[in-house]
Each structure stands twice: as structure tokens, then as C-alpha cells.
Nucleic acid binder design. Structure first.
Ligand SMILES: [Mn+2]
Ligand SMILES: [Mn+2]
Ligand SMILES: [Zn+2]
Ligand SMILES: [Zn+2]
Lengths: 137, 137
DNA sequence: CCCTAACTTAGACAAGGTCTAAATTTAAAG
DNA sequence: CTTTAAATTTAGACCTTGTCTAAGTTAGGG
């Protein structure tokens, strides 16, 4: 899989300086930043980038399927660059650390037809919560 | 299991008129109202109940373990009176209908030790999404 | 080089929620 | 019953997160 910036160049998407820095500060596994955190990081490289542009860029990347929105706690949404590999999340209830995790079975298989209410189910989102080893000690 | 109001009377919790109406408008399966919806329903019986009291009462009920907070979509939190039976949620991506569902297997069993990062996992939250039969037709 | 469409910006606005200080209610004590 | 202190409620200010708008800037095709 080519890298995110390379993929974006292919698509009909003008790669401006603002979009480049937003894209660059996203990256890696287990990375789940809020829009404000992304704005702060981007502003270190491009001081006058606006909040609106960060929000716009993130929305476009979500629409392009290049990043995913994660709603962890009813507070700020987080943006996940690991969009091309299906995965779930494990969150520390103490410090908030978020890990990408990969369950073995297809999570849908555990829901019997009698519990589907006639829905055509297209997506399953799982959040595991617990104490991380750091906080446990 | 005694009814919610009965249980609350047992505990050291002053059952004021405001707390009573908030508690009364909560109730039933597949019920997942927002704080504002609860406030509107409560105000039909007790017109001068304040938003702050609704939020306070809901927080207390959550702390008492009598209702659960559900974060469905990064918008308003929803409050679930079905707190004593572990269950998960199935949401229509079109109309937003929320159903309580009960997977067969323990959802934790699908996460192998190698994917637990040393966490002591205490809770799993699953959201299934799809099109409800009503919206599909 | 010019025109136009795409992009960016500041700041107003909105939804959802929290907090505070004052008023009211409750219940315990006398 | 009256007094008093603690618990509860209230209005509205305030905060966080996110969206929108109108004006300014940039950039590529002709
Ligand atoms: Mn992730
Ligand atoms: Mn429920
Ligand atoms: Zn931790
Ligand atoms: Zn529907």
C-alpha cells in the first residue's frame, strides 16, 4: 500500500501546504488525536493554519476513506489514520491511552438472527475498556 | 428485581418531585433518550424543572448504577434505563432507531491475550450499525 | 498575465454540557 | 411548632467542541 501522501496525490485533491501538514501529523498505529491536538501540531509547522481548515481537511480525509473518526468518550472526536485495516479499540479507563486491537472472530457472528430485528447490519464497532499495565502498577 | 423507584427509595436518596419525574420518564426497553428529550418530557409534568436538575439527576442515577450513559454518535449522550441486564446496541444508520441486543458469546473471548497489551479489561461496548427494515423498504 | 474556481481565514454562531451563587425546600433538633 | 443547617433546585453564565459564513488568498487553465 503506498503511503497516505502518495495516495492523495493520485486522487483529484489539491495538496496545499495546509493539507500537507495536517496529513503529515497524522500517521502511525495507535495514534488517535483530537482535532485540537492536530491543529496544535500542524501549527508548529505552519503557524497561521486555521481551525476551520483543520476541520475541513479532516472531514475530507474521512470522506475519502483515508482516516476514520473515533468516538471514544462523548468528548472530542479522534482521528485514526489506520483506516485501511479493520480494527477495534482498547482504552485505559485511567489514563485514556488507546490501543488498536484485532479480535479473532468476526464480531458480527456472535449476534444471532433473532437479535437482529430485521436489520441489514453493515458495521460493528467495539470498545474494550480496562486498566493499562502502567496504571495498574 | 423491584422497580427503579422502589429501589431508589431504599437507598439514601431523597426522592424529590423533580427526581421523581425524571425517573418516571425513563423506563422500558429500547429507550435511549437524550438529556434534552428527558427534560422536555419531565417538563410536561413539572413545568419549571430546570435543565441543571435534569443533568444532576441523570448523573446521580448513573453513579448509583441505575441507568447507563450511551454514546451513540458523538452528539448528545443518551440515557439507558436498562442498566441491570448487560446488552449491546444496534442502530439504524438512516433513522437512528436504537435497539437493545444480546450477543451469544462473551464478547471478551474474541480478544486473544496477544491483543490485550497487558490490560485488565473490565468492560466491552459494542455498537452494530445497519439499515432497519423500515428504512430498507 | 487574467479569470475563475478552489481554498483558507477570522470570527460569529450553535449544540451539548458544566458550574456558580442565590433561593428554596427538607428534615433534624430543640 | 419553630429554628436551623444541610440538601436540593434554579437561572443563567460559561466552557468545549464543532459548524458556518463572508471575505480574502491562491493557483492553474487559457
Ligand atoms: Mn485505531
Ligand atoms: Mn440499551
Ligand atoms: Zn492507563
Ligand atoms: Zn431506520
Amino acid at each position: 500500500m503506498p503511503d497516505l501522501l502518495d495516495r492523495l496525490r493520485e486522487r483529484d485533491w489539491r495538496l496545499t501546504a495546509q493539507r500537507r501538514v495536517v496529513t503529515e501529523v497524522l500517521g502511525g498505529e495507535h495514534v488517535h488525536l483530537t482535532a485540537d491536538e492536530i491543529h496544535a501540531l500542524a501549527a508548529r509547522r505552519l503557524p497561521e493554519i486555521s481551525r476551520a481548515t483543520v476541520y475541513n481537511t479532516l472531514s475530507e480525509l474521512v470522506a475519502l476513506g483515508e482516516i476514520r473518526e473515533v468516538n471514544t468518550d462523548g468528548r472530542a472526536k479522534r482521528y485514526d489514520p489506520n483506516a485501511h485495516q479493520a480494527h477495534q479499540h482498547l482504552i485505559c479507563i485511567q489514563c485514556g491511552t488507546i490501543k488498536d486491537v484485532h479480535p479473532e472472530d468476526n464480531p458480527l457472528s456472535a449476534l444471532p438472527p433473532s437479535e437482529r430485528f430485521g436489520f441489514d447490519i453493515s458495521d460493528v464497532e467495539i470498545t474494550y475498556r480496562g486498566l493499562c499495565p502502567n496504571c495498574a502498577s
